[in-house]
């Protein structure tokens, strides 16, 4: 691959994606029954009609849709995402502060579900058709069909309410000065949200790994390895894992979209002060600038997940990396 052209192409694709996402979300929000003015001043405002007219005029709310989009997009390009109504601060600041918290939550759940799901899938696939395998399959299908917030509530009511092992929400203990918060406090608060998001994400990767293992174990090169005297354990370590790991890693990176969606719901349940709960708050308050800002961040996050999946395939798979080769 001509690397420089490849990178240009990737950047172009990213810009196109962001453009499409921004247009779509802008149009959707414009068509939604949200009155930005009401959202800003509140439904029981005592503002006079003339004053309201002036604000509408000042904001350009009566301009045609394309003009409004261009004004907004132009500001975004200059780094101005507008002000959040909910938090009374610039959207860029809100996202910057919260993204790290969401990122920690997502990456922990992503890594855990990936590693656990991979090994669970292998353990289940090796015993294809057994009771254990069928139990794992049912378990994963149930998890995949269960909504994230419901699982979050179950986890919350069991571990936090019934057993009282973990706090019921937030990222740090309530009423504690920021300077006094310890790492242990942070970890203590992370456990349940991470657990929830891990459980929500584990079904997909487990089922995928299991399916891929069953497929691989039926292939000719496994048959040949057996005919050459390799034991089941050697076959799995030397051949099966090697052939499943790559597609599994790819699937895991490509699942950033589900991860982001699950994160939004889990954060809301646990009052985790990340991007997801901000997004929910923005949607409930008609906070258009924040909603649009988080939508763009979400799109960017998912895009990078898919990009990494593509790049990894090229780096790790010898058939792509050394394609053409000597033959």
């Amino acid at each position: 691959m001509a690397t420089r052209r490849g990178i240009l192409f990737v950047i172009l694709r990213m810009l196109l994606l962001l453009f499409a996402v921004s247009v779509l979300s802008f149009v959707l929000v414009a068509m939604a029954p949200i009155d930005p003015l009401v959202a800003y001043v509140g439904p029981s405002s005592t503002l006079s009609e003339e004053a309201k007219e002036e604000i509408v005029e000042h904001w350009g709310l009566s301009d045609p849709l394309p003009a409004r989009y261009l004004a907004w997009a132009g500001n975004i390009l200059r780094g101005d995402f507008g002000d959040s109504i909910t938090y009374q601060r610039p959207v860029a600041d809100v996202i910057r502060e919260r993204f790290l918290l969401s990122f920690v939550l997502m990456m922990l759940a992503w890594g855990l579900s990936g590693v656990l799901g991979f090994f669970l899938g292998i353990a289940s696939g090796i015993r294809g058709g057994s009771v254990f395998d069928r139990a794992v399959k049912v378990f994963c299908l149930v998890l995949q069909s269960a909504p994230a917030f419901w699982i979050g509530l179950l986890v919350l009511s069991f571990f936090a309410v019934r057993l009282g092992w973990f706090p019921i929400g937030m990222a740090v203990p309530m009423g504690k000065l920021a300077a006094d918060v310890t790492v242990a406090d942070r970890i203590h608060h992370l456990v349940l949200p991470v657990l929830t998001l891990t459980v929500v994400s584990i079904g997909k990767i487990t089922l995928y790994t299991r399916q891929k293992l069953v497929e691989t174990m039926g292939s000719d090169f496994i048959l040949f390895a057996r005919a050459r005297g390799e034991t089941q354990g050697q076959i799995i370590r030397r051949h099966a894992i090697r052939n499943i790991a790559l597609p599994a890693v790819t699937v895991q990176f490509a699942s950033f979209s589900e991860l982001f969606g699950g994160m939004t719901l889990a954060e809301t349940v646990f009052a985790w002060p990340g991007v997801g709960s901000a997004m929910t708050a923005a949607a409930l308050n008609g906070d258009v600038p924040l909603l649009l800002g988080t939508a763009l961040i979400g799109a960017l996050f998912v895009f990078f997940g898919n990009l990494i999946a593509n790049v990894l395939y090229g780096v790790l798979d010898p058939r792509v990396r050394e394609g053409g080769g000597y033959a």
Partner: peptide, 23 residues
């Protein structure tokens, strides 16, 4: 057979598909 395969008894298969594509 388990002790003989790959040592005293060797199998030569039909095609390159019998080799691990990633090793």
């Amino acid at each position: 057979l388990r002790g003989l395969r790959g040592r005293e008894i060797a199998f030569i298969p039909q095609s390159v598909d019998y080799l691990d594509p990633l090793m």
